[in-house]
């Protein structure tokens, strides 16, 4: 498998996180131009279905390392496995989702392989020298830096939602099962003793056609329920800025922006969101943006197709009422 690009698929209970499938799309484009293979790498437990899916989404081959020890992400174990695979297969590039786990894994592997890693990539293309030019937002997204990794493999962490996953089609690809790597006791430095899942429902912001998002201006968890009510009515998904998440009104899985997901739905309704750059970079690609804010100078109005100056606690219920009337 010389001459390949690794696309690392993160799994959760055997299911691949969206960003994994999404990364196959740009990897295939680069692979086609450079005559490389796109190889999905899956470290996890019970990943047969995930491996099949990676093929369906366009990977040329899949490498799996399947063992109970890899059921949940473990920093030391995953670092050793990915490093070993990279040393064996010598990929030209390694793409890893910029999730909390991916951002834990990538830098540690980068040091082991003594290579550079571009962070939070939102776009990529081949440059004239045949290297990958990665676009990385800096300064909260107000500046886009084009980064080139001079060393090999060219590593990158890739933002969720930055690329579109392909339409899956039933494809049978080569699946290589690699052995579990048993670490020496002294090499396992950290131990996860408890895993608490606060989120029961799956939040799929990347594929949503409608997103209704709330910000600090919603004021309280009770008021934030209005955001959900409007989202439900429109068959949409709830999004949030950092403030409501830090206040505990809603879980981190809903976060949109610099430290969350990048989204581009057909309709985005921003409720009580001022429009800080850190949030706007994650949603400015939406087709149609409605912003509701009582501050008429809120920067969110600069990017909204329709800005409604008013109190969200009045506007949202009125809007819900109107939509219900229209549909009656």
């Amino acid at each position: 498998m010389e001459n390949c690009i690794f696309v690392v698929m993160e799994t959760e209970n055997g299911a691949v996180k969206n960003v994994g499938f999404e990364m196959i799309t740009p990897a295939k484009e680069i692979a086609a131009a450079k005559n490389l293979k796109t190889v999905a790498v899956i470290i996890g437990n019970d990943v047969d279905e995930a491996a099949k899916q990676a093929g369906n989404y366009g990977a040329d081959a899949v490498i799996t390392v399947d063992a109970p020890a890899y059921k949940t992400y473990a920093s030391d174990e995953y670092t050793s496995v990915l490093t070993t695979l990279a040393e064996k297969y010598k990929p030209e590039a390694i793409f890893i989702g910029a999730t909390p786990n991916g951002k834990d894994l990538a830098p540690r592997v980068a040091v082991k392989l003594n290579t550079g890693c571009a962070a939070d990539v939102t776009a990529m293309k081949l440059n004239d020298e045949g290297k990958i030019a990665f676009t990385c937002p800096v300064y909260g997204g107000t500046i886009l830096a084009e980064n080139v990794v001079e060393t090999v493999p060219q590593m990158a962490t890739v933002r969720g939602g930055a690329f579109k996953k392909a339409e899956p089609s039933e494809t049978s690809v080569e699946i290589i099962c690699e052995d579990e790597i048993t670490l020496k006791a002294e090499d396992i430095k950290t131990k996860i003793v408890d895993v608490v899942k606060e989120i029961s429902e799956a939040v799929n912001l990347e594929d949503a056609d409608v997103i209704v998002a709330g910000g600090r201006g919603m004021g309280s968890p009770e008021n934030f329920a209005l955001v959900k009510e409007l989202a439900d009515l429109l068959g949409g998904v709830v999004g949030a800025t950092r403030a409501p998440i830090e206040s505990g009104w809603i879980s981190r899985a809903h976060q949109i922006g610099q430290s969350g997901k990048i989204v581009a739905p057909k309709l985005y309704i921003a409720c009580g969101i001022s429009g800080a750059t850190q949030h706007v970079t994650g949603m400015v690609g939406s087709d149609y943006i409605i912003a509701i804010n009582k501050d008429e100078d809120a920067p969110i109005f600069d990017i909204a197709n329709v800005g409604i100056v008013g109190n969200v606690l009045q506007v949202i219920p009125a809007m819900i009422e109107e939509i219900k009337k229209m549909r009656a």
């Binding site: 786990n101 608490v196 989120i199 879980s251």
Partner: peptide, 8 residues
């Protein structure tokens, strides 16, 4: 974590 937290 994305889903909650770990004790490590």
């Amino acid at each position: 974590t994305e889903e909650g937290y770990n004790t490590v």
